[in-house]
């Protein structure tokens, strides 16, 4: 039974701890995420949601325990394999992390360029994802000239452009009005239906209620409950 589950798991965390100096951000996290799940990480601000996502794409290393992503053991990952790991993910960062001095096109294209894709393919693909998120008219804009919701959509476009196996979304509807939030959520759902594993970290109970799926509830760095919604 456990064997079977681990075979189809794309993410496994086993007794993982994360400390920032004296701050214990995550305590003894054990978690299995099957392929193609839509999973919520919930909990109040400061509970450790962002920290948990960071451990997955190796934005931070675990202080203790094992993290396995799609067959890669992160406690033994070598420096030059980190980019390979990160290409499995499309991350929508809480603060978007768009390059302010580059156009929307360049911001998204860089993912494909880093993969060594051909120019013509990059051009086509970037335009296509911008259409998907409804931002094709802003292709030459600089991120600071866009509204929060628009930047969020660019961040989504960048996260999905490389067709990653896993999408991580950190407070994807954080500071958006309801309409913008719905657009983002529908995009994530659509990507889930197409076969990606989607993990959404949020403190927004309404969002979880609207969507449905497994919910991991964090409190002060520990998993408090796992429930199905």
């Amino acid at each position: 039974m456990i064997e079977k589950q681990s075979k189809s798991s794309i993410i496994r965390m086993f007794h993982v701890h994360k400390n920032y100096g004296a701050v214990k951000a995550l305590i003894d996290i054990t978690l299995d995420v099957p392929k193609n799940e839509l999973l919520f990480i919930s909990g109040p601000s400061g509970a450790g949601k962002t920290s948990l996502l960071k451990l997955l794409y190796f934005g931070e290393a675990a202080s203790e325990g094992q993290v396995l992503i799609d067959g890669m053991n992160l406690s033994r990952i070598s420096h030059n394999r980190i980019p390979i790991l990160r290409r499995k993910f499309g991350v929508i960062f809480q603060d978007y992390k768009l390059i302010r001095t580059k156009t929307v096109f360049d911001n998204i294209a860089i993912v494909l360029e880093a993969m060594g894709k051909k120019r013509r393919f990059v051009e086509k693909k970037v335009r296509s994802v911008l259409r998907t998120v409804g931002m094709e008219n802003s292709i030459h804009s600089l991120p600071p000239t866009l509204s929060g919701g628009e930047q969020q959509r660019i961040a989504v476009a960048r996260a999905i452009v490389g067709d990653p196996k896993i999408i991580l979304a950190d407070e994807p509807t954080g500071n958006l009005d309801e309409d913008s939030a719905d657009i983002i959520l529908n995009l994530l759902k659509r990507f889930h239906i197409r076969g990606a594993t989607v993990i959404i970290a949020t403190h927004d109970k309404e969002l979880i209620r609207k969507t449905g799926g497994r919910v991991i509830h964090l409190k002060q760095g520990r998993i408090q409950t796992i429930s199905n919604n």
């Binding site: 980019p83 390979i84 990160r86 993910f89 991350v91 960062f93 860089i110 880093a114 993969m115």
Partner: peptide
């Protein structure tokens, strides 16, 4: 910041 972002989206050091 830009270099950090490039790394986060999977760019190699060489790139």
């Amino acid at each position: 910041e830009e270099v950090e972002i490039m790394r986060l989206v999977g760019a190699t050091d060489g790139f």
